[in-house]
Design a protein around this nucleic acid. Structure first.
Length: 490
RNA sequence: GCCCCCAUCGUCUAGCGGCCUAGGACAUCGCCCUUUCAAGGCGACGGCGGGGAUUCGAAUUCCCCUGGGGGCACCA
């Protein structure tokens, strides 16, 4: 077997879609697993819809996911250029060859007429198919019309007979060629059609395996015919299923985030995305669910990719994302989360950062969840007005707060490392116990006093990350509030 | 309309004729842990779309139906 060469061939008409990312991932894994090469080819033959902005965005998002191609417009390679807009000469040569071989012919039929005919066929319950009007034109007729200034498109003459291939994922697939009409390979405007350019490029770039979405399965028949007409060996094809929205329809904007850039902005980790995308239809031999990119490269086998379409399950992506977040070192987590905190106007001193990250780590589903949990370290809300306020006015609260104030005044520094904060808190709990205040009666009022919330990270994190000044200030305001409710008989 | 593909818990899937009383994961629910929210541990709920055929035996093979998806362009 010659060295495996695969390609990912997006068209820069939009941001990198999560479905395209999966195609890229499967190509990448297939290449890596088989010690082959992945090439990135930008299919920008649609000048009207392609933009350089998307071109750049796609390359950037692929890199962010860790799916860097071995050859492509950004890194170069021996089979360039890697943008179709720069390959016209190559396509033209192929068109001329097909014309010379009689495998293609010029077509002068106006578009309006073709549309009419197709509609008529559709109405009659038949498959729309070109009627070969121009196929029978003689060389002289063609020359005359061309000389008369008429514009011609070039059509591929579809040969008779069945086309079949062994799909890497689906197994044998057969098409009858009489379902396929002679299709355009070069447009009147001089552009080359997708089905044609793809084949010329896959042949020219010596692609051995084409892994793409199921929406291309019917294109394969046409492409196989062109490979044959060009006298080039056809690659193997593998068509993976498509990703559907929860309602079974095509995944689109109205279902929420659909592009890699959006997921990135929402705070999803690349490792979680690639892990999830792989798991959508690939399954390992055993029952593990968590795979790093490196592990996927090692274990990914296209034989184990499922044929059926899959519904995008945000819940599972969320679960994986949380898994990867919990795995991060707090220091790294803070760095990852910092932009979101900054957006919410939160900044933390270097000494607090690791504590804050560690404190909120287990709560995060995405990085963008950080502000809502980190808030307890930042906001200076009045505990008296929060929903947990009733806990501040228990029979022993006033006494507890006075004790706590005395206790925290002894803190040796503004910020303490977590283990020391734990000790300080333990000391307070002991002292409170001696005064007959224990359990929930100490933890809960303290929590509300310190954070103005009834829930949040473990108390010692608050002690560590809040800072002595803030702790005392908050306790004092809680104490003042509690005093107003204190039972004068106590 | 025609062509192609697909069909196991709500979702992603394991299963490739007896190992299936159908396994795992997410979600859901319950319990445990716990000062709270999470995280974590344990458990529960829950499925082979329908009909034929082959076979001693079918989730697994074949046919039909139904359902879903894709395609049928001078878009990619």
């Amino acid at each position: 077997m010659t060295d495996v060469r695969v390609r990912f061939a997006p068209s820069p008409t939009g941001s990198l879609h999560i479905g395209s990312a999966r195609t890229a991932l499967y190509n990448f894994l297939y290449a890596r697993h088989n010690k082959g090469t992945m090439v990135l080819r930008i299919e920008d033959t649609d000048e009207k819809r392609s933009t350089t902005e998307h071109d750049r965005g796609i390359i950037e998002n692929l890199a962010w996911l860790g799916l860097q191609a071995d050859e492509g417009p950004d890194v170069g390679g021996p089979f360039g250029p890697y943008r179709q807009s720069e390959r016209s000469d190559i396509y033209e040569a192929a068109v001329q060859k097909l014309l010379a071989d009689g495998a293609a012919y010029p077509c002068f039929c106006p578009q309006e007429m073709l549309e009419q005919k197709n509609e008529a066929l559709l109405a009659a319950g038949k498959m729309p198919k070109y009627d070969r009007t121009c196929c029978s034109l003689t060389k002289d007729e063609v020359a005359a019309r061309l000389a008369g200034g008429e514009q011609a498109a070039i059509r591929f003459k579809v040969p008779d007979g069945d086309v079949n291939f062994a799909d890497l994922i689906h197994g044998p697939i057969t098409f009858s060629s009489d379902v396929i009409g002679d299709f355009i390979i070069k447009r009147t405007d001089g552009g080359y059609s997708y089905n044609f350019a793809v084949v010329v490029d896959d042949a020219g770039m010596e692609i051995t395996d084409v892994i793409r979405g199921e929406d291309h399965i019917t294109n394969t028949a046409r492409q196989l015919m062109i490979f044959a007409a060009l006298g080039k060996p056809a690659p193997r094809f593998g068509h993976h299923s498509l990703i559907l929205a929860p309602d079974g329809s095509k995944l689109s904007k109205r279902h929420g985030a659909t592009s890699v850039a959006q997921f990135r902005g929402l705070g999803y980790l690349p490792a979680a995305i690639t892990n999830y995308l792989a798991l959508i239809s690939w399954h390992p031999q055993d029952e593990r669910e968590k795979f790093s990119l490196a592990e996927l490269m090692e274990e990914f086998e296209i034989e184990r990719v499922s044929k059926s379409p899959a519904i995008f399950d945000l819940q599972k992506l969320n679960w994986l994302n949380g898994l990867y977040i919990r795995e991060m070192a707090p220091k790294d987590l803070f760095v990852a989360v910092a932009p979101y905190l900054a957006d919410s106007g939160m900044a933390f001193a270097p000494v607090q950062q690791e504590v804050v990250a560690e404190a909120i780590q287990a709560n995060l589903v995405t990085l963008s969840d950080a502000p809502q949990y980190a808030e307890v370290f930042h906001v200076d809300a009045d505990p008296a007005t929060c929903s947990g306020a009733p806990d501040l006015t228990g029979p022993q609260s006033s006494q507890l707060f006075e004790l706590a104030i005395e206790h925290f005044k002894q803190m040796p520094a503004e910020f303490l490392p977590v283990p020391e904060a734990r000790e300080v808190l333990r000391g307070l709990v002991e002292a409170a116990k001696e005064k007959g205040v224990k359990g929930k009666a100490v933890y809960h009022p303290l929590r509300v006093a310190l954070s103005a919330r009834g829930e949040g990270p473990e108390l010692f994190y608050l002690v560590a990350g809040l800072g002595k000044t803030k702790i005392l200030k908050r306790l004092e305001s809680a104490a003042a509030y509690a005093a107003r409710f204190a039972d004068p008989t106590l």
